[in-house]
Design a protein around this nucleic acid. Sequence first.
DNA 1: TTTGACAGTTCTATTTTAGAACTATAGCCT
DNA 2: AGGCTATAGTTCTAAAATAGAACTGTCAAA
Lengths: 154, 154
Amino acid sequence: MKWDTLDEEPCSLSRTVAVVGDRWTLLILRECFLRVRRFEAFQSSLQITRHLLSERLKKLVRFGILRRVPYSESPKRYEYILTQKGLDLYPIIMAMVHWGDTHMGDERGRPLLHEHKTCGKLFDPVMVCSECGEPLHAKQVHVHAGPGRREAVG
Amino acid sequence: MKWDTLDEEPCSLSRTVAVVGDRWTLLILRECFLRVRRFEAFQSSLQITRHLLSERLKKLVRFGILRRVPYSESPKRYEYILTQKGLDLYPIIMAMVHWGDTHMGDERGRPLLHEHKTCGKLFDPVMVCSECGEPLHAKQVHVHAGPGRREAVG
DNA sequence: TTTGACAGTTCTATTTTAGAACTATAGCCT
DNA sequence: AGGCTATAGTTCTAAAATAGAACTGTCAAA
């Protein structure tokens, strides 16, 4: 597999996987959504090697998911903040958290609970159809080739 | 990082990442949702090495995401079918496809279109709150420690 | 009896990751 | 002035994972 051009495959899943499809990147994004922004903070909460952290942050900046913003002149220091493109990854992260809650739980219960400020309740995320609003299930979906399809890939 | 015990971390995202948090596994799951079931079919559509395919399929079976079902006695041959636990990964896959459609598209348009059989329309997936039904955004969510939380992880 | 399909396993070379040490800038303390 | 600390990285070597190709075993069909 040519991982270096995976983001140009005629498949939206491949393109997403090219950007966020590895363990460390997903864990870094979790920290971002928990409002972690600084190199040392990522490093100490994840126990990731500094080398890989540096490399992954660069990649996320390169793909426009994080912005590297100075928070101190002299000495120049930067923090990493989610862009809108990065914030839009929220459904992916939440879908993964929800699946983990549902299928990988233990007797101690959930690690985190999520409150929807808008309605004030603890919630779970639900994926619905943009057209009819009903919850979506794999078996109710039919896939068609779209205009950007080249070959026999999804 | 102790990747071998990531599925026991007190964090639902980590536990999910432990199971589906790598490139090949996500691409294999895409094929599963496109109704690919057999070793040779996965191998030829993904161009994954047979070694890794074998290893990943075993892992997905071990975690209860695929079932290895015989479709021929003599010679014994098996195919790999999504369990309910595997089908429940659909929101993760669809959220990734949707993000790719939105943020990684090119001038050729979408590779695939999705039709909701229930309502008959082409749709996008939307993540909503289970309690009030409104679309969810990261900034409207407040996180609380749940009973299964041990330390300062999500 | 030979060929081909299918579902793997085994082997070596290359790439990626882990782990630790090192660099650079600047503020603060004595 | 000299040394300590904080932050944000870079560099180095060893270990682990992946790529790529060849090989194995079972059976059916020609």
